Amino acid sequence: MKMSSISGRSLTAIGLSVMTAVGVVNPASANTPTTGHLAAAQEIVTQLDTIGWPAESAYNQYNSLTGGTVTWGTPGQPTTYNNNSQCAPFVTQSVQHAYSWARGSGSGSFFYTYFNANSPTSASWYYGLKYGKRTGPSTWIDVPHFETVNSAREILPGDVLAIQYGTGTGSPTGHTAIIESSEVWDDTSPTTTVFRVKVLDSTSNPHGLAPAGDTRSVGYTEYNGAGSGYMLLYADKASGAFTGSKWGVNEGGGSYYPNVETSAGRPFIVSHVTD
C-alpha cells in the first residue's frame, strides 16, 4: 500500500517549509536539516543524464580502483561535468561542494578530524555516523553537522544513508548514498513497514533493471557511475526503527540483509545533514 511521499526536488525549492507525514523534523533537534549537498548531487546526475547512454560513459563511470573525483561544470554544458568515483567519495565530495565547513584536507579538515580520512570509506562513514569520533578508550564525541534518524518515518530529502557490509573489512566495505525521497512501499505486514527510498549514488551495480527507475538502466543493459535508483528500507511498524534493507526492487542482487553488525548483516544508519 502506497502512502504519502516527500520529494527532494520540491523540498529544495520551498526551503524545507512544508513537510509530510513521511518526513517530519524532530522537534527536539537544535539544528535545521539542509539540502545543499542533495542539490549538488542532483545537478551532476541531471546534467550528465542529458548526454544519454552509452555516450555518457565517457563522462560518468564508477572508479573501481581508487576513490576517484567528481567535477561540477557549467549548467547547460553537460560535457563540462565528470564523475569518476566510488559511492563514498561521491557523497563526500557532494557535501564538500555544498558546504565550506566540509572542505579542505589534512589533519585539520572536517573529514580527517571526524572520520580519520580525507575521503572516508563507506565503513568509515557508517562508523562515524553511528558511534562518533573516538577520543579515548571508552569515550566518543558526536560528529557535528549530522543527526541520527531513529525512525524511518523521519527520513528527509538529503539524508545520508551509510551501509557497512558485514564487519566492514571486505572490499567494498559498504555503500553510501544520498536520499532524495521516501515513501511507504508495503504496509501489509502486521509487524514491518517497507519504505522505498530514491537514492543518488555512484555504483557499479544499478538498483534494478527497467522499469525499476534507475537512471543507469536502459532496458536490460546496466551502466555504471553516478545516477539515481530505488532501494528498500525495512522498519519496525510500531517504533519505526530500521530492521533491514534490499539493494533494489526487481533485481537478482535484491536479497534482504538484516540491520545487524554480523558477517551476515548489512548494518546501516540514516542521518540528517544540518547547517
Rank of each mutant, 00 (worst) to 15 (best):
L161I: 02
D187I: 02
S122R: 00
A98K: 08
S245Y: 04
P258I: 06
G219S: 06
Y131T: 01
S17A: 11
H175R: 00
S263W: 04
R153D: 05
A123D: 00
T121P: 00
Y99F: 11
T66F: 01
G36Q: 13
H37V: 14
A58T: 14
G106V: 01
S217R: 01
S204A: 13
G68V: 13
G36C: 11
G168Y: 00
F146K: 04
S239I: 06
G68W: 14
S85Y: 00
Y112V: 05
T50S: 15
G225W: 08
Y62N: 13
V25N: 10
T188I: 04
Y62I: 02
I179D: 05
P120D: 03
V149S: 06
L65K: 09
C87T: 10
S181A: 10
L48N: 12
F146D: 02
Y234D: 07
P157I: 04
G219Y: 08
D186F: 05
V218D: 15
F195H: 15
N224Q: 12
D236L: 06
W101G: 04
K130E: 12
H145T: 02
T176N: 04
I178G: 02
N118P: 06
S171D: 07
A88P: 01
H145N: 10
S124I: 00
N250L: 07
T121Y: 00
S217P: 02
S5M: 11
S202M: 07
P267V: 13
K237N: 06
T215M: 08
K237P: 09
G104A: 03
M231V: 12
Y234P: 01
T71Q: 11
F110K: 03
V95M: 15
G265C: 09
S105W: 00
R216A: 10
S119M: 10
G248I: 02
V24Y: 08
N250M: 04
S64N: 14
P258T: 13
L209F: 14
Y256W: 13
V91K: 00
T35A: 08
L16Q: 10
A58S: 15
A123C: 02
S57K: 15
E183F: 02
T188E: 07
W72H: 09
Y220N: 14
V18G: 07
L200K: 02
T191Q: 10
E147P: 06
A241N: 08
W247L: 06
E183Q: 08
S100P: 00
G52R: 07
A55C: 07
L38V: 14
G8C: 15
Y234T: 00
Y230H: 12
G208K: 13
S255C: 06
H272K: 11
P33W: 14
